[in-house]
Amino acid sequence: MSRRISYLIVLTICVGCLLSMRTPLPAASEQFRGKIFSTGEMPPVDSRTELKPGDKAPDFTLPSISGESVSLSRFLGTKNVVISFVPAAWTPVCSDQWPGYNVVKSMFDERDTVMLGITVDNIPTLYAWTEEMGGVWFPVLSDFWPHGAVARKYGVLRSDGTTERALFVVDKQGMIRYIDVHNINERPKLEVLMQELDSLK
């Protein structure tokens, strides 16, 4: 009996050690204090996309927070497109990802590229969230209804109804050139995205 208790204690301490070694979440901006729902650490990826570089990017039309609908095909022949799926509004990491893209518009301009930000949230939620960021220069699109239809088309809809943290680079011919279905708990590095855009020149 006492041996069993000893083993149980050892097991408990092991679990405690493992839990204390978990990956820290990125720094949060004071801007969002008290406004972000803590999701905790999530499974890094929870979907599997069939798309690969070289495939034609599935076209879509989604409503944006500005009131107009935006189609991917609108940019055919004129601009490269970065499609940035983020899991959900008012969550950690997401709230610190788009504000970064927001201040480096010139980097996208220099690479003849536009960004389309997509989440499965509804328009009012996205509007309030991006207003808290101080507004963003790129179209913010709602894949709310039918829920996650575009995310599903791109193979990045998670089982809980949110999306992966994913980047798709689509060239002016409408071909997918780069896919990064990122660990949902981490922010993709800006330089990697810019290197991919540089390779389109």
Binding site: P26, S29, Q31, D96, P99, E132, G134
Partner: peptide, 12 residues
């Protein structure tokens, strides 16, 4: 200063 390029408050 501890900042982040991604932090809107830091930008402001």
């Amino acid at each position: 200063e501890i900042f982040s390029m991604y932090c809107p408050y830091c930008q402001k």
